[in-house]
Each structure stands twice: as structure tokens, then as C-alpha cells.
Amino acid sequence: MAELIPITRSISIDPSEIEETFVRSAGRGGQNVNKVSSAVQLRFDLKNSPSLPEAMKRRVATLAGKRLTKSGVIVISANSHRDQPMNRADALDKLVALLVAGAHVPKFRVATRPTLASKRRRLEGKSIRSGIKRLRSNPADNQ
């Protein structure tokens, strides 16, 4: 069995959940530019993945944006290298980075009100600043 791909300490995905297809890459390649399929399209079925909790799936779906298909599959393309193994590693790194970002639970922000003292300090600072700017203007305007 292949080794699990770690996402967080408690979450990891099975490599069998990832499907890779190789296509011809547009761009650099020298003599092999039209002969070798070095670009990688990585597909990960987010919707049906048993490895990820539902809350994380929702966060990853919003982070994936256009890379997520209507059927819930993430499609990641990598073609920046001439070498197929380097493109495979690059695509896998992109997927892991996306899943790690989705694993982060955003902190709940509690709305607070500024204190009366902080409001006074802010207004005093504004009046001091406006006085400085008034002194910089023309003397005729100060009357």
C-alpha cells in the first residue's frame, strides 16, 4: 500500500484518491516539445473523499474557486517544468497547500466597541493634527 499524504497531524489522504493524467505541455521543451506529455492534470474528488471532514470540504471548496468542477472534483494543472516528475511533484504540492489552507479553521471574531477613552484620544489626535495643518496654510486663511 502506498504511503498516506499528510495534510495536518490528524488528517491525511490516500494516494489512491488522486488521479493524474499527462498531457502535452505548451511552452518550453526543446526537441521534445510536441512529443512528450510532461504536463500533469491532477484530479482529487473533494466531494466524495472519505479522508476529509465535511467542514474542511466546505472551506476547501470556497478556496478552490475555478479549480473545482460542478461535480466536486478539484483539477490542478502543472506545466512549469520540462520534466514530468517535477510537474507531478508541483501539482501535488499545490493540492497539499490548498488542503492545508482549508484545514485552518478561521478564528471567530467577537465584535467589540471602542472605549470612551479611546474615542477621546482619537478625536484629540485629530484636532491636534488639524491644528498643525491649519498653521501650514496661508495666513489669510487662518482668520
Rank of each mutant, 00 (worst) to 15 (best):
K35S: 09
S80V: 11
R58K: 15
S71R: 13
R43D: 07
K70N: 11
S130N: 13
L42I: 09
A97K: 14
S16M: 07
I18Q: 04
I11H: 07
G65E: 07
M1K: 11
V105F: 02
L42Q: 04
K57T: 10
A61T: 00
P50I: 05
S71C: 01
S127P: 02
D93N: 14
K57C: 07
K94I: 04
Q41N: 14
Q41I: 15
L42P: 03
K35I: 05
A103V: 04
L46N: 03
D45A: 11
G102F: 00
P139A: 13
K66D: 14
G29H: 03
N32Q: 10
A2K: 11
I11V: 14
R122K: 14
A101I: 08
T69L: 05
E19S: 11
R129M: 08
K57D: 06
R113S: 11
N87P: 08
V33Q: 05
A97N: 12
R43A: 14
I18R: 03
Q143W: 02
V75G: 06
A64M: 07
K70V: 09
R67P: 05
L68M: 01
E17G: 07
R122F: 05
R24K: 12
R134L: 12
I13T: 09
S38F: 07
S25I: 02
I74D: 08
S127H: 09
P139R: 14
A91G: 05
S127Q: 13
Q41T: 12
L98E: 01
V105N: 02
N79A: 14
R113Q: 10
E17V: 04
K57F: 00
V75D: 04
L52S: 11
G125D: 13
I5H: 09
L99Q: 12
V73T: 10
V105E: 04
S137I: 10
S118C: 08
K66P: 13
P106W: 00
R9P: 04
N142D: 11
R24H: 05
F22V: 08
K47A: 06
A61P: 04
I7T: 00
D83R: 12
L95C: 01
A97P: 05
A39Y: 01
L42R: 08
A55V: 10
A55H: 06
R113F: 06
G125K: 15
D90S: 13
S38C: 12
A64F: 10
R88F: 07
K119C: 02
R109Y: 08
I128F: 10
S38E: 05
L63E: 01
S38Q: 06
I13F: 09
R88Y: 03
L4T: 14
G29N: 04
K47F: 05
N32G: 09
T21R: 15
G29W: 00
A140D: 15
Q84F: 02
R59Q: 04
S12Y: 10
L42F: 05
I132P: 06
R67D: 14
V23N: 04
V110P: 01
G125T: 13
V36E: 08
P85C: 12
P114H: 02
R67T: 11
H81S: 14
K47T: 01
E3Q: 07
T115L: 01
R109S: 11
A2E: 13
G29D: 02
I5Y: 05
P106M: 03
G30E: 06
R59Y: 00
L92Y: 05
R121Y: 08
L4S: 14
E3V: 09
D14Y: 02
N32V: 03
D83C: 14
D93A: 15
Q143T: 12
I74G: 07
R28M: 04
S127L: 15
